[in-house]
């Protein structure tokens, strides 16, 4: 159990550390209460392929 938790904690700590560092280095680090939206369809497909994850396409109108 401890072995399973350790990598998760390491990742969480590393991500948090990198997040803090990156926040100072470059604006645009995604705050935890927002969805990260891809900037283009091509970018979405490239990232989805690299990560092997689905693409969620959301169509909306104002109002």
């Amino acid at each position: 159990m401890r072995l399973a938790i350790a990598p998760a904690l390491l990742l969480a700590a590393s991500v948090a550390l990198a997040g803090d560092r990156d926040k100072k280095e470059k604006p645009g680090t995604i705050p935890p209460d927002f969805i990260h939206w891809a900037h283009s369809w091509e970018e979405a497909k490239a990232e989805a392929k690299e990560r092997n994850v689905p693409i969620h396409v959301a169509f909306h109108k104002d109002g």
């Binding site: 990260h36 979405a44 689905p54 396409v57 959301a58």
Partner: peptide, 14 residues
């Protein structure tokens, strides 16, 4: 929703 969104790539179209 945010946790689930991290298992996908999300694209917003409007």
């Amino acid at each position: 929703m945010i946790a689930a969104s991290k298992t996908c790539v999300n694209i917003f179209c409007n």
